[in-house]
């Protein structure tokens, strides 16, 4: 099963949430938050998951690290099927993966010191035998994330640190077990603009140095260029477009990606009065969505077929996949 260099492979991954309604919960609906996602990630590479709120990007991230159990499809990690693993296997998988959350202020137990917060993963996995070596490891990761002098930070409580500092600690916690894969779920969206770039640089540098694979979840296309080799554009639980980041940004193919790029703020003041044409409407409700292209209701280029059938992924150019009937080759 294992292919060369592939760390993570997703095959038609699905995460549906159940909602029960009606008398004695007789009716069951599903929120199809992630509905058939396929992609693979090489070791030591970073991929951006881009999409607006409710597109399922966070759910996908959490499903990949098995905070949610998938309803369908498969997750292969280092060639091993981790889709439904339990107990000790799951614990091993937890060690192989790390999570950096969006909200640094909520990410730490307020009654733990920074030291204790960082020590917890080591204790749980019994990763380091002795107390001294645990402390050594904690100080080492704090140094890695540039929180120096480490003694000053280690014994503080979370509320004594700033958002940027806490996010550094969160990154330290994610890498302390030496994982292969990190999910960074909008790691800078709650931080001040001034520290965003520092955190992203830190994450990128660590990724390169420790040969980590990173899944960078964001709604901000601008930062993907800086961060990742690959980009996935998500909309309503589907991956609409996937290609190298450069390719997606320079040559967007899917109407949704184009709209997303148009919506990105333009720093040139000369363009300040230019009207941006953005498709109207909202993303569809994910409870029992229609079986067709999910962007079709808002798509300016939609035609008959778009409202009837869900498009498969077409390889428009080499390594550039689009889920859109416009790129069907007859």
């Amino acid at each position: 099963m294992s292919s060369d260099g592939k760390l993570l492979e997703l095959e038609d991954l699905k995460k549906w949430f159940e909602i029960r309604r009606g008398f004695l919960s007789s009716k069951v609906y599903y929120v199809k938050a992630v509905d058939g996602v396929t992609f693979s990630l090489d070791e030591g590479k970073a991929v951006s998951l881009v999409g607006e709120s409710g597109s399922g990007k966070t759910t996908l991230g959490k499903t990949i690290i098995r905070l949610y159990e998938p309803n369908g499809g498969r997750i292969l990690f280092q060639g091993k099927d981790v889709t439904h693993i339990k107990a000790n296997d799951l614990k091993w998988y937890r060690r192989m993966t790390g999570l950096v959350q969006q909200d640094p202020f909520g990410a730490f137990a307020s009654h733990f010191t920074i030291f204790r917060s960082l020590e917890e993963p080591l204790l749980i996995h019994n990763a380091v035998e002795s107390k001294e070596k645990r402390a050594e490891r904690v100080f080492k990761v704090l140094e890695e994330v540039r929180l120096t002098p480490v003694e000053d930070f280690a014994y503080k409580y979370p509320h004594m640190l700033s958002g940027g500092q806490l996010q550094r600690v969160a990154i330290a916690r994610a890498i302390i077990l030496e994982p292969k894969l990190i999910i960074a779920d909008e790691p800078v969206s709650m931080l001040d603009a001034s520290v965003r770039i520092e955190i992203l640089t830190l994450l990128r540098r660590l990724q390169e140095r420790l040969r980590l694979s990173v899944i960078y979840i964001t709604h901000d296309l601008a930062t993907t260029r800086f961060f990742s080799e690959w980009a996935l554009i998500m909309y309503a639980g589907h991956v609409m477009e996937k290609a190298s980041t450069q390719e997606v940004l320079r040559n967007p193919l899917h109407p949704y990606t184009k709209a997303l790029l148009t919506a990105t703020p333009d720093p040139n003041p000369e363009n300040r009065n230019r009207f941006k044409e953005v498709p109207p409407g909202e993303p569809p409700a994910l409870v029992n969505p229609p079986i067709c292209c999910r962007f079709s209701p808002r798509c300016p280029l939609a035609f008959d077929k778009c409202f009837k059938e869900e498009p498969p992924e077409f390889e428009a150019t080499s390594g550039h996949w689009v889920k859109c009937w416009l790129y069907e080759r007859s």
Binding site: R94, A109, S110, H111, P121, I124
Partner: peptide, 26 residues
Amino acid sequence: SYPYIEAAQAYGASNGRLILFYVIPK
């Protein structure tokens, strides 16, 4: 529902540990 619980689950804390060290002290 707090993020720190989710973070702890992500690094493998068991239910018992979560209840004892993460929830009850709060």
